[in-house]
Design a protein around this nucleic acid. Structure first.
Length: 899
RNA sequence: GCCCGGAUGGUGAAAUAGGUAGACACAAGGGACUUAAAAUCCCUCGGCUUCGGCCGUACCGGUUCGAUUCCGGUUCCGGGCACCA
């Protein structure tokens, strides 16, 4: 064994050894429990960033740990290879997206391999390869025929100068990122997955996922957004006073967009039907038929509707923009009072949600209140707070001035539930009760009913982009939309293209000209591609059988699925994880998998964030500058106060801390770190810096410490081995100091095991090993017995660190136990006998403040502990002659004496 | 705007089920070794203090014998918001 720790030599050697031995190749083996450990696959953006290192190290620690615990482990890797950045890079550098992507993959694969991950590389896949996406197209055609996929119009961001559809990311302050033109909303036909058909199951099955973080489940629940409410119809013409029998029957199912004869009622959905008597106007979306109708002979209104079409479709933009509206002059009639209610067009009402119309109750809704004040619309209060039962203002700590607990006065808008007033027959009822009754009466009148709605919308997957999976549909003038027959799949995306503005395949007759598979007539192929979320919704299953060319999945998928541990960034908590869950259920219903859910356990790692820097360019755009090229100036408290570009010494603007991303150019390349210190140091530091779920602001301070620890470990093992290896201690009498050391060793094994397996908190596991090493360094190990205990401890230390820093541990374990190999080594087990303790130290508190410590036998009862506490001299000192009022005894912890 | 998180020394953090606040590290300061430097090792390291203690986990309030932990409110920061992945 070398006296020096030389990662630059031992790391490539270890990696080559594992590769030659195919040490991590996985196969189906029913003799062992399986453990499928999956980290979210990377987008091949060019280089690894710190988030990748964090993600894949966490996955590797868990994979290697379970391998040592005797599991049959699968840890695969692949590439989420389609996507927008390849097209942007292509435009910027005049290269084809395919070539750019493949060379990025090659570089990043090399980087990943230099991290020493225990990956089965034989299963590697890339979503941009036809042998992958052909099965996505195959499933698409089946789902299209089944009706799970359908076509409808949807709104996109349109750049009127570049004549392209823009991603939300490409809209900056309402303008196209390249053209600078004001973005418009435009409706185009798109294909949709009926994810809403699965809303109920996607919601209820969250309760069957105990291995998922609560916060992710809460986010998904809120996203799916099941709400119980009432659909209310406002007739377009006044009804005769007695006249519910005269009412036209409820809408015949024709869409609201049908020309000519429109619905005789305006439908709205509300969760607050109890406020119905407080309605002072209704608001409709700019695209609503009523708005269009009113605009026909009202140029001012038409201009306003046109204005509403400006801006991006992103919900965040819609929700934060200034709320504007205009009266259409039209009236609808209140379903109960028959009073006329003005119809307004408002930019905050979305055609895509519910009915594209809302009833407005300014007295009891924040947004309606602000809108009514702005346009001086009437405000009518119909809900008052519930009066406090019994006499008011009694009891301790009851805040006497809380307005919501008082019957009057209360301030508007009052948005809580309460008691109805000025609401006809319903006055005096509670909100809950009134919602039921109002729904019932509306139903009897034929003017509404209870309804369950979902916030979740169907998943639109058409993208007007080039670098994606072609949608396998042929448009025939006689047969309509025809799915490409299985024998003609895959529809291959041409890779040898030139990119300028717009998708090249839309201008490529050799791609889109074809014949109809049904009638043989001239037809055109669809040129839109699929949302890249579709590829990432099923890759985890394909890893089970990446070589299969006769189908999408085979029985191997059911051996490996569900994924036992999925690891990825918290930013994917909703979209990716929801789509993958949905897709799994689609595949289940196609008979491709047996399970209901794809991921049994989920670990959402916090983001690696970094400071952003930029300069404003003359054309109003921002030039993002990498933190590595910037020198910062800090104040006494360590906060960054100024920054300049190293290259020219001129100042740059500090943009704030954000997740590392390509678009903000704030990713820190880990390569320098790996080159300088080695992969083990990078891995150790990443795992030690913070617990995995917490976000981590990148700083390279502290890396030295991780490296120093590895050098100390190397030195300690080296010195021990040089003096001759001995058989590890296995049992027998020990002097007190060695017994204490051995207790600490086995406590550490128990803690590290728990930290990795249950808590998945690697930083405290490492800290515990460091403490043990500190104790080990203080032991004078000259006699045989002490050396045997030290041997036992060093073997355990090396094995416990092996999942985190495998390269160094491979050498160290071979030195400690000649002939052994790391990949076949088992995880150490805590020896219960070594954990036994006779005495424990308890804390002594007086009035909750720490005043002393005392020792008792580990099995002492409550009375004995209390007696020992009362007898302690520290207590007498702090009692100051007073007698204890109360004594709280917490065995194993403390005694609190209250005086 | 809405949904979900977070905030603890100069810094990263620990405290696992309401029970010793600051483990383990980094940085800094001091010392040993050395001709010197690097490396290594040792010590100090939340604030105030009349040296008895007192204060302190973003802020305000509550529950409790006891709150970093639970509850109500506030501020700031991060993530997501359906075409970034």
């Amino acid at each position: 064994m070398d006296a020096q720790y030389r990662p630059e030599i031992i790391e490539p050697e270890a990696q080559q050894h594992w590769e030659e031995k195919q040490a991590f190749k996985a196969s189906e083996d029913s003799s062992k429990p399986k453990y499928y450990c999956l980290s979210m696959f990377p987008y091949p953006s060019g280089k690894l960033h710190m988030g990748h290192v964090r993600n894949y190290t966490i996955g590797d620690v868990l994979a290697r740990y379970h391998r040592m615990k005797g599991f049959n482990v699968l840890q695969p890797m692949g590439w989420d290879a389609f996507g927008l950045p390849a097209e942007n890079a292509a435009m910027a550098n005049n290269v084809a997206p395919a070539g750019w992507t493949y060379s990025n993959i090659d570089y990043m694969r090399k980087q990943l391999k230099s991290l020493g991950l225990a990956i089965d590389w034989s299963r590697e896949l890339a979503t941009c390869k036809p042998d992958y996406y052909r099965w996505e197209q195959w499933l698409f055609t089946r789902l299209f025929e089944k009706g799970v996929i359908y076509k409808k119009m949807a709104t996109v961001n349109w750049d009127p100068v570049d004549h392209t559809v823009l991603a939300n990311e490409q809209v900056i302050d309402g303008r196209g990122w390249r053209s600078g033109a004001l973005v418009e909303k435009r409706d185009i036909p798109m294909y949709f997955f009926r994810i809403t058909d699965y809303a109920e199951e996607l919601l209820s099955e969250l309760d069957n996922l105990p291995g998922w973080p609560e916060r992710v489940k809460t986010m998904q629940k809120n996203w799916i957004g099941k709400s119980f409410g009432v659909e209310i119809h406002f007739p377009l013409t006044p009804t005769s006073p007695q006249g519910s029998s005269m009412l036209p029957s409820p809408a015949s199912g024709r869409g609201a967009g049908g020309e000519g004869q429109s619905d005789p009622v305006l439908k709205v959905f509300t969760t607050r039907a109890d406020t119905l008597f407080g309605v002072t106007y209704v608001a409709v979306a700019a695209e609503h038929p009523l708005a269009q109708q009113a605009a026909a002979n009202n140029p001012e209104l038409a201009a306003f509707i046109h204005e509403c079409k400006q801006g991006s479709v992103a919900e965040a933009d819609m929700a934060t923009m200034e709320k504007k509206g205009m009266d259409t002059g039209l009236k609808v009639y209140h379903p109960f009072t028959n009073e006329p209610v003005p119809v307004w067009v408002a930019n905050y009402v979305l055609m895509g949600y519910g009915e594209g119309a809302v009833m407005a109750v300014p007295a009891h809704d924040e947004r309606d209140f602000a809108f009514a004040q702005k346009y001086q619309l009437p405000i009518k209060a119909v809900i008052k707070p519930l009066e406090v039962k019994g006499e008011g203002g009694r009891g301790k700590g009851e805040p006497p001035t809380d307005p919501t607990l008082h019957p009057s006065p209360f301030t508007l808008p009052y948005t809580e539930h309460g008691v109805l007033m000025d609401s006809g027959n319903f006055s005096g009822r509670t909100s809950q009760d009134a919602i039921e009754k109002i729904a019932l009466v509306l139903k009897n009148l034929g003017l509404g009913d209870r309804r369950t709605t979902w916030r979740l919308r169907d998943w639109g997957i058409s993208r007007q982009r080039y670098w994606g999976c072609p949608i396998p549909i042929i448009h025939c003038p006689t047969c309509g939309d025809v799915p490409v027959p299985e024998k003609d799949l895959p529809v291959v995306l041409p890779e040898d293209v030139k990119i300028d503005v717009g998708s090249p395949i839309k201008k490529m007759p050799s791609f889109y000209e074809c014949t109809c598979p049904k009638c043989g007539g001239k037809a055109e192929r669809e040129t839109d591609t699929m949302d890249t979320f579709v590829e990432s919704s099923w890759y985890y299953a394909r890893y089970a059988c990446p070589d299969l060319d006769k189908g999408m999945l085979d029985g191997r998928a059911n051996y490996w699925l569900p994924v036992d541990q999925y690891i990825g960034g918290i930013e994917h908590a909703i979209l990716h994880l929801l789509y993958a869950r949905f897709f799994h259920k689609l595949m289940r219903d196609e008979g491709l998998v047996d399970s209901n859910e794809p991921f049994a356990n989920l670990l959402t790692q916090g983001m690696v964030v970094a400071e952003t820097y930029y300069r404003d360019l003359p054309d109003g755009k921002k030039q993002w500058i990498n933190p590595a090229d910037v020198e910062v100036e800090r104040d006494d408290r360590g906060h960054i106060v100024a920054a300049k570009l190293i290259a020219d010494g001129q100042p740059v603007v500090i943009g704030g801390v954000e997740k590392m991303s390509k678009s903000k150019n704030n990713g820190v390349d880990p390569q320098a770190l790996i080159d300088q210190y080695g992969a083990d140091t990078a891995r150790l530091f990443m795992m030690f810096a913070a617990p995995p779920e917490q976000s981590l602001e990148w700083s390279d301070a502290g890396v030295e410490g991780a490296h120093r620890f590895l050098k100390r470990l190397w030195k300690m093992v080296h010195e021990h081995v040089e003096a001759g290896v001995v058989p590890a201690f296995t049992g027998g009498e020990l002097p007190e100091n060695l017994q204490g050391l051995r207790r600490q060793l086995h406590q550490t094994i128990a803690k590290v095991t728990d930290d990795i397996e249950r808590r998945k908190q690697f930083n405290t596991a490492i800290a515990a090993v460091m403490e043990l090493m500190n104790a080990l360094g203080k032991v004078d190990a000259t006699d045989e017995l002490a050396r045997a205990v030290k041997q036992e401890a060093l073997e355990a230390v090396v094995l416990m660190l092996a999942p985190i820093v495998p390269h160094i541990c491979r050498i160290l374990i071979k030195a400690l136990k000649p002939g052994s190999c790391l990949v076949g080594s088992a995880w150490p087990q805590a020896d219960e006998a070594a954990l036994v303790q006779n005495e424990v130290e308890l804390m002594l508190q007086v009035n909750g403040k720490l005043r002393g410590k005392f020792k008792v036998a580990v099995d002492a009862g409550k009375e004995a502990i209390e007696a020992a506490a009362l007898a302690s001299p520290e207590l007498q000192k702090h009692l100051d002659g007073q007698s204890p009022k109360k004594v709280v005894v917490v065995p194993g912890r403390l005694v609190n004496v209250v005086v």
